[in-house]
């Protein structure tokens, strides 16, 4: 057993290709995120018997917002201008590291589970500080609620992915996906299934969907995420929305590829990359559609029932790791 220095990978051939595929991933997620939000709104509308806005509506909204004037609240500090940027930047780096289109993202050697989870935490912390920055009652309340939910969902996310890491004997995300491709039987193993349930709960909480949070409410008693970003407008709001949309696409893509990795590009050739792209799009659309259907068919939980749901997710994740250790 030897410990080695993580290679910078800069010297290895194909570095430019990897950078290219990572940039491609970021670009795909940046576009796919808003489209997914639009798709979910459409599915919800159709399920409720309405026509609903077109799928491209969120993208059009973003286009409108970036052209507007930036208006910031009176008492804000530098945090209000930095936080939306940090949210987007952390989501971009996390996306660049995660195996979404290809199993060879740039810096695959450093694409650790913990880095991705803590990059997501970085975005959440930036938003929560942002909510407190204007000194309004809504912003602070939203931050408080978001951090409370995050304090329980982050550990569940970490432990759920750990269940997979223990199975694949690596905490490197691309390596976990590659190992799953090599051992198709793992997908039906009990620890995977338990971890899947836990992850789904967490993803719903992290992206602020029903039954944890209602993205379309502006009712003070119930809003969480919307309360935090209430003071933003124009380009800042565009960044926040884009960042949140990227996180949604990233988390859904991560769940899809951790549990059903087939279709992902593992060779690096142009054709495989194209297949990877199309398959990722299909997986994201199906998952987003499912989430939207769940949203239509369930009621939002009371805020103080949410921790019970998340704690359930955490316990499932711990059970998943334990099962993995016992059945090894």
């Amino acid at each position: 057993m030897t410990l080695v220095l993580t290679s910078l990978a800069a010297a290895s051939p194909g570095f430019a290709v990897r950078v290219g595929t990572s940039v491609l991933q970021v670009a795909v997620v940046a576009v796919a995120g808003p489209l997914l939000l639009g798709l979910m709104a459409k599915v919800r509308a159709r399920a409720e018997g309405r026509v609903g806005p077109p799928v491209g509506q969120v993208l059009a909204d973003l286009r409108k917002l970036v052209r507007k004037e930036a208006v910031r609240a009176e008492h804000t500090s530098v945090v209000a201008s930095l936080a939306p940027l940090v949210l987007v930047a952390s989501a971009m780096v996390a996306t660049a590291l995660t195996p979404l289109v290809t199993t060879h993202p740039v810096l695959a050697g450093g694409a650790d589970v913990f880095v991705v989870v803590y990059l997501l935490l970085m975005g959440s912390v930036a938003l929560a500080l942002d909510g407190l920055d204007a000194g309004t009652a809504f912003g602070g309340m939203g931050s408080s609620r978001a951090m409370t939910i995050g304090a329980i969902s982050e550990p569940a996310l970490l432990v759920a992915i750990l269940a997979l890491a223990v199975q694949a004997r690596t905490s490197n995300l691309p390596a976990i996906v590659t190992a799953t491709l090599a051992h198709p039987g793992w997908v039906a193993s009990p620890q995977r299934l338990l971890a899947l349930v836990a992850l789904v709960v967490v993803v719903i909480a992290e992206t602020g969907r029903i039954p944890v949070d209602n993205p379309s409410t502006h009712l003070e008693l119930t809003m969480v995420h919307e309360a935090m970003v209430l003071e933003h407008g124009g380009p800042d709001l565009a960044l926040v929305t884009a960042g949140e949309a990227m996180r949604l696409a990233l988390l859904l893509g991560l769940v899809a590829n951790l549990f059903l990795p087939w279709g992902i590009d593992s060779s690096g050739s142009g054709g495989a990359l194209l297949v990877g792209l199309v398959v990722l799009g299909a997986k994201l659309a199906v998952l987003a559609g499912l989430v939207a259907l769940v949203e239509v068919s369930t009621a939002k939980l009371r805020l103080f029932r949410v921790p019970e749901l998340l704690a359930g997710g955490f316990v499932l994740a711990v059970v998943a790791v334990t099962t993995g250790l016992v059945t090894r």
Binding site: M1, L3, T6, L8, L107, G109, G110, D112, V113, F114, V115, A165, R169, T170, S171, N172, A175
Partner: peptide, 9 residues
């Protein structure tokens, strides 16, 4: 390690 690998930079 032979058992489990991981790296961050």
């Amino acid at each position: 390690l032979a058992s489990l690998s991981g790296a961050v930079d």
